[in-house]
Design a protein around this nucleic acid. Structure first.
Length: 975
DNA sequence: CACTTTCCGGTTTTT
DNA sequence: CCGGAAAGTG
């Protein structure tokens, strides 16, 4: 890369004070942060006094790498005296995610939290951070149910609404945590009055302003209220020829919410208390508790402090995090970097206002934090805060930048609004392109309108082919020349996962394509075919299974039906080939992993999804001796619950990537396609259905209200007051526009935006100028139309790559490879169950969790773990894969325990055997793991079989890979 | 043309 | 069950 530009230099050189850096897309943000970080160290500041916080692990890792590299360069160019300091600095770099930092604080000082809240119980050092939001909701639900039951009748009308909408209460409480609002045993933190009231004056003001802005002839707001009155059946009407009367504004804004606040206070406090007592943390609780520790304990706060702090992606912070940042500093040296235009995490309570209103928020926060005692030991006035700007875009052509900025621009309806936008740097790009000279005219932004969704999907595929194979496109290389685009240069960015999947499915088999993200793998063709075969193999009379199998062949629907009808008597009407396949598969019914891979190889299916399914099924099977019917049940429940699994990402660089816009943040591609910019889809019109509204200005409000009609008759219906207040929240720039901005600004040279039912985003952006679909005809030879699903043919279709379970190639005496497996006896089933139990305990122990079971084997495991104390990392139950490319086979298995040392990896495997009869086989097993791990980490591996029943260990060097290959060959022979 | 009624579709996700 | 947009109405 070339030398830093002026603004990058200025920012990297401004080391002291408070600094906000507005860094538009592609402006060299990471580089500037790295440079600034290094500059601070160069000044002689000790590396442990500088902290860099980010939001994702990836970003944290990348930063660390790049800082280390920069330091390494310095190292080479300086004298021996400085060398040691530089070397040392690179070891103690303080970079990490906000959440991991908070987690450290909380687990290190758990007693501070109980002390602060006045709770008897306390979090342990090993408190579990429950990442699964579904389970967290369930936990809250249980806690709240119980609580409301115990306090039945204490909270008047509010209680009814809360108990009917516990999930919504959880959401609202999480939003409060992010906003830094939380209950004390009595009252609320940091305020005499109720912090949930909001800013009544501000809301009233907005309602009045709204009145002025309304259409001269008719007044919108009174009409709106009348509509609600009508909907809920209240006989009341406001005059629509006059503005909203002041007394109505007052009535709406100053609605009495004391019961609602009381129930939330008590429930919120109770939830905190129970979580502490049950030793349960969520990400939100961790963040809140970290604040509490820093706030309440002077010693900890000072011990944790830094002289310099930098925060990346600052638009993703919430206010709790900002306040923590202020307390973490010993001196006023805070540099925040981000781009509010890329703030797309509002649904996670991130506030772009932390960035846009940084100047106003910070001084206020500091004085609040210093309310009773000095917690922030420096002063920052609004005018001390410097604002700098990265303004050169090194990524995109100016056509693309212009388009991206236009996507943000809203038709400002007043001069005042326009001015606000100008201040925010919105009217016209605040960034200019550096690429135009190099790119020249090899850039475009195109708009395509298709007649319907499937036609649009087709069009996307066509255009992918055109970009990758057609003439007239050139991708700029580092040396300034152009090359033909390849599939790997193209990204398809969608608003939602659904669209991603649909486009992925349509493109698969025709274009090399790769989808990133979790998928409902069991609902795919692969999943359903497998399910169908499992059912049919399990039971020859399974009608659903057979009909699904038949429907995937090229039999006409009529023929399928006649077969199904014939099924009522016997299965002679089933095509012979299918029956043969069933017999072939049935022989493998006890080797689930093999059965699964065989089903897929019948169809020649070997892709990300089939891999993911294979690994889910085989690990479920491995963990608890499942039968075919258990697997069937699991798959069926996954289908009906819409369970998503991570699909292993093997981007080979030459495949089109399909991902959501959210996932694309921070990435760049030469060619970007943005499909489905349709009405209701993008911008998404999913409305807030929550029973509670929580916002800085409006405070906490209930969207429902209990209406009483005379004699004891009452009903819960929407609250007209909250409805009115909600209208003040309508933001001019909503997240959807920023999402479009993110999508467009990923592109370096070419963009195609398409729609079948254009939304107003599409219309606005294209200016009504779009091209119909179907104009592009990529060479037919290139279009490998997926042949209509062929009937599976046994044997003739060699599997392209076979996934083989490690256990499949091991020989345990009575089990001939490829033959019928030994029949599980009651005794051997028991032994396996015991083995599984020991493995589970061992896993928990590695993770530092309590283990209740106490038998001799556990003590042995503990002794082994204790002997590994100087390891840099211990990973239990990790999946591994060892490819044999010449054999077209990948061996897959799960390592019981992988121990990482700086210079080697150690593979451990727990064995509950009473003899060492199978040692030879186990050595092969561990050797496979060792080669896989060794390849992954680039370190030599050592194997160790831990016989926990015998209390013996067998350490050895892995057997040569060739020995394993021989086994694999034998296995393939026998197939 | 302006307003009302009916209809439709239905997220994003790191730590 | 809600809000946006198409269809329906005067």
């Amino acid at each position: 890369m070339n030398a830093p530009n002026e603004s990058q230099k200025r920012i990297a050189g401004t080391l002291e004070g408070f600094l906000v850096v507005d860094a538009g897309p592609g402006t060299g943000k990471t580089r500037t942060i790295v440079e600034r970080f290094v500059n601070i160290l160069e000044k002689g500041v000790s590396a442990d006094r500088v902290l860099l916080l980010t939001f994702t692990r990836n970003a944290a890792e990348e930063m660390k790498e790049r800082i280390k590299n920069a330091l390494a360069e310095i190292y080479l160019s300086c004298g021996s005296e400085r060398r040691r300091a530089v070397e040392n600095a690179s070891k103690v770099l303080q970079t990490g995610t906000f959440d991991s930092f908070c987690h450290t604080i909380v687990t290190e000082y758990p007693e501070a939290i109980s002390r602060f809240f006045g709770i008897d119980g306390k979090l342990s050092r090993g408190a579990v951070l429950s990442e699964n939001e579904t389970l967290n909701r369930e936990y809250f639900n249980d806690v709240a149910d119980r609580f409301l039951f115990d306090r039945c009748g204490d909270y008047g009308d509010a209680e009814a609404v809360v108990s009917q909408h516990i999930g919504d209460a959880y959401t609202a409480i999480n939003a409060m945590m992010s906003a830094g609002i939380f209950p004390l045993k009595k009252g609320w933190f940091g305020s005499e009055s109720d912090p949930l009231t909001g800013d009544a004056e501000a809301v009233a003001d907005k309602l009045r302003r709204n009145r002025e802005m309304s259409n001269k002839k008719e007044y919108r707001l009174p009409k709106d209220v009348n509509q609600v009155f009508k909907d809920i059946g209240i006989e009341r009407e406001l005059p629509t020829d006059s503005p909203l009367p002041e007394d109505v504004i007052t009535e709406a804004v100053e609605d009495d919410r004391t019961d609602l606040f009381r129930v939330f206070h008590d429930l919120y406090y109770h939830y905190i208390k129970r979580s502490v007592e049950d030793d349960r943390l969520t990400f939100s609780l961790t963040s809140l508790f970290a604040f509490v520790v820093l706030y309440s304990e002077k010693g900890i706060r000072e011990g944790m402090s830094f002289d310099y702090l930098m925060i990346d992606e600052f638009q993703d912070t919430d206010s709790n995090q900002l306040r923590m940042a202020l307390m973490l500093l010993d001196r006023p040296n805070l540099c925040v970097v981000g781009d509010w235009k890329q703030g797309i995490y509002g649904f996670r309570n991130a506030e772009i206002e932390n960035m846009t209103e940084f100047h106003e928020r910070v001084p206020g926060m500091i004085s609040e934090l210093n309310d009773d005692t000095e917690r922030v030991r420096y002063r920052v006035a609004e005018e001390d805060i410097k604002k700098m700007h990265l303004d050169v875009n090194y990524r995109s052509s100016s056509e693309i930048i212009g388009c991206a900025y236009r996507s943000l621009t809203v038709r400002a309806s007043s001069q005042e609004e326009l001015d606000t936008e100008r201040i925010r740097g919105l009217v016209g790009p605040d960034v200019y392109s550096d690429r135009d000279g190099a790119i020249g005219d090899r850039s475009h932004v195109r708009f395509v309108k298709a007649d319907n969704v499937s036609e649009e999907t087709e069009e996307v595929v066509r255009r992918i082919l055109d970009y990758a194979t057609g003439d007239g496109y050139g991708i700029l290389c580092d040396d300034g020349t152009f090359r033909r685009p390849s599939f790997g240069d193209i990204a398809v960015l969608c608003r939602g996962t659904r669209a991603c999947i649909e486009i992925y499915e349509a493109a698969r088999g025709r274009v090399p394509v790769f989808m990133q993200g979790d998928m409902e793998i069991m609902s795919t063709r692969e999943g359903k075919l497998l399910l169908a075969w499992l059912k049919y193999v399990n039971n020859r009379n399974d009608r659903w299974g057979l009909s699904a199998i038949l429907s995937d062949t090229n039999l006409a629907p009529r023929e399928v039906r006649s077969v199904m009808d014939g099924m009522r008597s016997d299965d002679r009407c089933v095509p012979e080939m299918i029956r043969e396949q069933r017999d072939y598969l049935r022989r493998k019914r006890r080797r689930i992993t093999e059965l699964v891979t065989s089903v897929f190889s019948l169809y020649g299916i070997d892709n990300d999804i089939s891999h993911a399914i294979t690994s889910v099924v085989s690990s479920a099977h491995r963990n608890s001796l499942l039968t075919i019917s258990d697997i069937i049940r699991m798959m069926e429940s996954d289908i009906s619950n819409g369970t998503r699994y991570r699909v292993e990402s093997v981007p080979d660089g030459e495949a089109v990537i399909i991902q959501t816009i959210h996932k694309s943040k921070g990435l760049e591609y030469p060619i970007v396609m943005i499909p489905r910019v349709d009405s209701r889809v993008f911008p998404s019109t999913v409305s807030d259905r929550s029973a509670f509204l929580f916002d800085r200005d409006t405070g906490l409000r209930c969207t429902k209200e209990l209406y009483r009609f005379g004699e004891g008759y009452a009903k819960i219906d929407r609250s007209w007051k909250t409805h009115l207040v909600k209208r003040t929240l309508k933001k001019e720039y909503d997240e959807e526009r920023r999402l479009l901005f993110v999508a467009l600004s990923r592109a370096k040279q070419y963009v195609t935006v398409s729609a079948s039912d254009p939304s107003f985003f599409f219309k606005e952006l294209s200016g009504g100028e779009s091209v119909p679909s179907g104009l592009i005809h990529p060479g037919e030879a290139e279009v490998r139309k997926e042949s209509p699903a062929r009937a599976p043919d046994v044997g003739r279709l060699p599997p392209r790559r076979l996934n083989v379970g490690v256990h499949d190639i091991l020989r345990f005496g009575d089990d001939e490879p490829g033959g019928e497996p030994r029949t599980p006896t009651a005794a051997s089933a028991d032994a396996m169950r015991f083995g599984t139990a020991v493995h589970e305990c061992a896993e928990r122990m590695v993770l530092g969790k309590e283990v209740e079971e106490e038998y001799p084997q556990i003590a042995v495991v503990r002794a082994v773990l204790d002997s590994l104390e100087d390891a840099s990392e211990m990973i239990p139950e990790i999946e591994c894969a060892l490819p044999f490319n010449d054999l077209n086979v990948t061996l897959r298995g799960i390592i019981d325990l992988l121990v990482l040392y700086p210079d080697r990896v150690e593979i451990h495997d727990w064995k509950t055997d009473r003899t060492r009869d199978f040692e030879g086989e186990y050595m092969i097993q561990l050797s496979i793991y060792a080669h896989a791990a060794s390849g992954h980490y680039g370190l030599p591996a050592v194997c160790c079989i831990d016989y926990v029943t015998l209390d013996e260990q067998h350490r050895f060097q892995p057997l040569p890979e060739e020995d394993i290959a021989t086994r694999v060959r034998d296995y393939l022979e026998a197939l």
